[in-house]
Design a protein around this nucleic acid. Sequence first.
DNA 1: CGTTTGTATTTTGTATACAATATTCATTAT
DNA 2: ATAATGAATATTGTATACAAAATACAAACG
Lengths: 224, 224
Amino acid sequence: MTEDLTLHMNAYLPLRDVVFHTLREAILKGELKPGERLMELQLAAKLGVSRTPIREAIRMLEQEGLAVTIPRKGAEVAKMTEKDMQDVLQIREALDELAASVACERIKPEQLAELRQTMHAVEEAVETGEVKRIAEADVRFHDIIYQSTGNPRLENILNNLREQMYRYRVEYLKNEKNYPTLLEEHNAIVEGLSERDKGKVTSAMQKHVKNQVVAIKEIIREQG
Amino acid sequence: MTEDLTLHMNAYLPLRDVVFHTLREAILKGELKPGERLMELQLAAKLGVSRTPIREAIRMLEQEGLAVTIPRKGAEVAKMTEKDMQDVLQIREALDELAASVACERIKPEQLAELRQTMHAVEEAVETGEVKRIAEADVRFHDIIYQSTGNPRLENILNNLREQMYRYRVEYLKNEKNYPTLLEEHNAIVEGLSERDKGKVTSAMQKHVKNQVVAIKEIIREQG
DNA sequence: CGTTTGTATTTTGTATACAATATTCATTAT
DNA sequence: ATAATGAATATTGTATACAAAATACAAACG
């Protein structure tokens, strides 16, 4: 009976949430491009709802840093400059290190097993060369680590920061020459966590983040 | 809930922003207490606006972590458990350390002067014993450091995390026996920054954050 | 020409109306 | 008494209406 109730609740998810998830996906997938205007009436028509849930979803996208609103002008998909990217990566470096360190203390055997499994999933995805699959597996890999910290707020902030770079990171993953490094680093992270070797884990994590900086910067410079 | 919330009208700011700032202040000052419901019609009547800007402001408060919405039930002022506080402080520790470290490299002479001046403002406020003044000066002190990092996103996240604890931190500042430690730590931070001594700054900052943990935990336990 | 000005159009901001859901509380049945 | 029931009420969710501001563009002017 309680299960029916919860399922029911999910079925009646407020439209603002549905719209929010829809727009979020569209932005992350690149269907809505950085700088593109988010016009309420247009989106409302396209999604078959009124402006109200659209407006609320836009406020939520602002929350995630995926949209920027200029009063009386409207909202647009957030652009990231090279400086923005640097700033985000500086924070990610610190927090990924924190997450790695805490995970090292708290990760449970079953999470470690899942992590190892996901690492293999990344490897397989790399072999197929399907960028989308690689990206998804990689997100899952890091999310397991974030979850294993037992700090939902940290998990949330880190996912947020990752999200903001996602659009650019996909480009990074299109370049095959980055694959070997990526896999090695994942391996080092898993090994370090298995051995509860904090130094190994954090340094591997730092390298992992830093390696993306140069490549992503280049991509941003191309896009202007 | 009989507080007289009054709008600080600014002709060119959308009402949602005015409402947002008003509610935010009320929450931080404790006029709206953790767990208190935020009812749209009631707030709209009290502030003399319609529900629309109220709803948008609530979405923005959610963004800041100051409100929590349950679909079809409504929003309420966010409560923090001891665990939440621990989680936040764990992140703040890492990011305050980062901020201190970056500030050490980048802080400009005029910012350092302002910081020193603000440190004295805190000292003076402590002498008067006016908690509100102490809190405000202390916020300014840390904000100068955050600004000096030249990383607006870091500044934003840190201010956010501080904000979420603000309501509880005020209680901490009511206890006079905390004052000497507070001032010493501020002094150590300023000295460290002046000497560009990264180790000194970051360790002082860490102590500064950690010292608040125990006291704040106690306060939360009292409030349930 | 280039600039300015005025008007039509688009778009956002705000209020309100209506629908769906949750809550309250008196009533009834057990 | 206690629990279940169900209308009355309160509250949120969504759509729409109207106001204000921004924008685009064409006509008037220098």
